Every structure is written in C-alpha cells, then in structure tokens.
Simulated scan of single mutants.
Amino acid sequence: MIRILSAFVLAIFGTLSAGSANAADPAPRLADAVPNQYVVVPGDTLWDISARFLKEPWRWPEIWRMNRAQIKNPHRIYPGDVIVLERDAGGAPYLRLESKQRPQIRAESLSQAIPPIPPNVIDPFIATPLFVEQNTLQTAPRIVATQQDRVFLGKGDTAYVAGADPAQKQWQVFRNGQPLYDPEDPKRILGYEAFHLGSATQMKPGNPAVFEIDTAKQEIGYGDRLVPAVRPELVDYVPHAPDQKIEGRVVSVYGGVGSGGRLSIVALNRGGADGVEVGHVLALERNRTVVQRDEDDRHQNVVIPAVRFGLVFVFRIFEHVSYALAVQSDGTIEVNDFLRTP
C-alpha cells in the first residue's frame, strides 16, 4: 500500500495543474503565516505539509508549477528535504524542493518517502470489502453446514458451502449488513454496507464444497454468505478536484456510528456511474434544518445555508456508492451532509 501511495506523493497536494487549470479560477491562496521554508521530518504527511503553505492544499501543483504529465511521475519527498517558498519576477509564489541528499538514484526504500496520508488509516479499507451491491448476497454461495460439534466457526475450522465456483480458491465471508439508503430518495437502497466476518479457502470443490476458515473477525455460522476475494485494483492516481460538477450526500460514517470527524471513512451516494473517480477531492458542507416555532406557536423548519467545513478524497468506488477519507474537518461529519466539487 505504501508503494502505491508513494507513487503519487506530491499529487495529494494537487488538483488542476498549471497547464490544465481553468483560467477563470483564482490563484491558489497562501496560508496565513505561511513559512518561507519547511524541513520535512519523519511522520509528516504530504497533505499536512501542503496545508502549511496553502489554504487549498489540493492545489499544490499550481504553485509547484507541475503539469499533469509531470504529476504522473512526481518527485518523492523524504525526511530532511527542504521545501522553499519563493517568488518569480512577477511576484507570483512558487515552491521549490531542496534535497539534502543528492545521489542520482535514491538508496532509500519507498516506504521512507513521505506518504500523502497516514497509510495505516486507509490500508484496512483497501484490503477489506466495504460494500456489497444490492441482491449480491442473496445469490451468493452460502454455508450449509459446519464441522461436527460446532455451531459457530473460527480460524482453522471447516465449513461446507453450497454453490461455490470450484475454480475460485480465496473467498470473503459476509452476513447481510446495514442497508444504505439514498438521502435524496429514502426508499432507494443503494446496497449494503458489508458486514465482513472473515476469509476462507476452498480446500475441496463439490456441492457442498469443503472450506477452511482463514480469519474470523466475528463468529461465522450456518447461512453466512461467501463472495470471491478480489483485492481492488490500485492505480497510480492523482487526487484532484472533479473536472465536472458533482453533488452528493454523506450516506454513512463507516463503523455504524452516527457521526465522524477528521480521518473518518464516509460513504457517498455517488459512484462510478455518476462520474466519481478514485482520487477526487470533494468539499464537505453542513446540511442543517432547525425546527423553531413561529409567532403563532406553530412548528417551522428553517433551512440553514450550507457552510463548507471540510474536505474528503475518494479512494474506492462502486457503481452508485463511493468511499472517501476525511482529510480535513472543522466540525462533526453527519449523515446527509453535502459533498460538492470544491
């Protein structure tokens, strides 16, 4: 995972490059009390470093003066490197990287490069299924019996599964999870948040097939369903603002909690079919309605204007749902909050 993240290290700072930014966009705003230089230290993330220089951290390449071709293979930043803020002849600010170590080829492992975000936060959500499309589990192979004298199964136990593809060895075990309703259409179920129980290996094909439980996060038993274990394809992506207008809502805060904050994982009611891409940066806006009483003591709903309070970036997408990490939040993230192109 760190290798994948390191492949676009500078990119988390940026969205539209100098060569592709909309001419109508105002220039990136420097942060208050912006430093003239910053020395990178172990434990830094690129997003936090960017926020030291810019009020809009994702627009880093615009003052780094990188174009999209360069961003595809960006420089890597390492502890000890110095980021310097300078100005050109016209007074426009730009950033320059000074390396304290200048071999032609770096000897450090990729894991020593500064990651865009804390990799330990996002890695479990890359490796573990998050979402199951509607009706997927109803037709999935299921456990029809457990090994003798066992009601529930754990690591190393045997399960007997009906309907399993004999060519598929590795599987994930699920139970019907919480439905995700579209806030814009409360009767529409987008799918189910995956109630992931563990993983299993098909040891002997058949009907039922013999499976061995590899991992068990929860008790596994009769009726639980299996889905082929396919790790999502990871691409070298550049976090960026969408080129088109995207508007959506927060469907859930992962983990079944009602609210979240910075570094929370949130589900959006927009996915690949709606133009959402892995790497999109979206703005969080508060969606509030206050119930008051009017002069006649009748209930009155007052819609409070949306106020931007954070940023997320998308790291996994499905057809109509996507998952994003809250990289910035000045308040509590709640279900039904707005997500928009920043």
Results as ranks from 00 to 15, higher is better:
residue 266 V to K: 07
residue 339 L to I: 08
residue 185 D to K: 15
residue 323 Y to Q: 10
residue 58 W to F: 01
residue 137 L to N: 02
residue 96 R to I: 13
residue 319 E to V: 11
residue 129 P to Y: 11
residue 176 N to F: 15
residue 39 V to R: 09
residue 145 A to G: 04
residue 182 D to M: 09
residue 17 S to W: 10
residue 342 P to G: 01
residue 283 A to R: 14
residue 143 I to Q: 04
residue 65 R to F: 11
residue 197 L to K: 03
residue 266 V to L: 05
residue 270 R to K: 07
residue 298 R to H: 03
residue 242 P to S: 02
residue 268 L to M: 07
residue 290 V to M: 01
residue 236 D to R: 10
residue 323 Y to W: 09
residue 204 K to A: 02
residue 122 I to R: 06
residue 172 Q to P: 11
residue 206 G to H: 01
residue 299 H to N: 05
residue 195 F to Y: 15
residue 54 L to E: 01
residue 253 V to I: 01
residue 297 D to A: 00
residue 184 E to S: 13
residue 163 G to I: 07
residue 341 T to W: 10
residue 305 P to R: 05
residue 191 G to V: 07
residue 195 F to V: 07
residue 197 L to Q: 02
residue 88 D to A: 11
residue 290 V to E: 04
residue 4 I to K: 13
residue 75 H to E: 08
residue 64 W to E: 14
residue 277 E to W: 00
residue 293 R to L: 04
residue 301 N to Y: 06
residue 108 E to P: 12
residue 287 N to H: 03
residue 115 P to L: 05
residue 316 R to F: 03
residue 293 R to P: 04
residue 125 F to S: 06
residue 97 L to P: 02
residue 243 D to R: 10
residue 68 R to I: 15
residue 246 I to A: 02
residue 194 A to M: 10
residue 308 R to Q: 13
residue 340 R to W: 05
residue 328 Q to E: 12
residue 73 N to G: 11
residue 173 V to Q: 01
residue 22 N to I: 15
residue 189 I to C: 06
residue 241 A to N: 07
residue 193 E to R: 14
residue 247 E to S: 14
residue 121 V to Q: 08
residue 301 N to A: 08
residue 284 L to S: 08
residue 289 T to F: 00
residue 24 A to Y: 12
residue 143 I to A: 01
residue 81 D to L: 03
residue 32 D to H: 14
residue 221 G to C: 06
residue 129 P to H: 12
residue 247 E to V: 13
residue 194 A to L: 05
residue 190 L to M: 05
residue 128 T to Q: 12
residue 157 D to C: 00
residue 313 F to A: 10
residue 243 D to H: 08
residue 125 F to C: 06
residue 270 R to L: 03
residue 190 L to E: 01
residue 207 N to W: 05
residue 37 Q to R: 06
residue 233 E to R: 15
residue 222 Y to I: 05
residue 124 P to F: 09
residue 28 P to A: 04
residue 264 S to G: 10
residue 221 G to S: 07
residue 301 N to M: 11
residue 264 S to K: 03
residue 303 V to S: 01
residue 297 D to H: 03
residue 183 P to L: 03
residue 288 R to G: 00
residue 254 Y to L: 10
residue 176 N to C: 13
residue 60 W to T: 07
residue 170 Q to L: 13
residue 81 D to A: 01
residue 39 V to T: 11
residue 107 A to I: 14
residue 20 S to R: 13
residue 149 D to E: 13
residue 19 G to V: 14
residue 309 F to Y: 10
residue 208 P to K: 03
residue 25 D to F: 09
residue 220 I to T: 02
residue 232 P to C: 01
residue 7 A to L: 05
residue 293 R to V: 02
residue 163 G to D: 04
residue 64 W to R: 15
residue 76 R to D: 06
residue 172 Q to K: 13
residue 149 D to H: 14
residue 98 E to T: 09
residue 111 S to L: 15
residue 96 R to F: 11
residue 26 P to N: 03
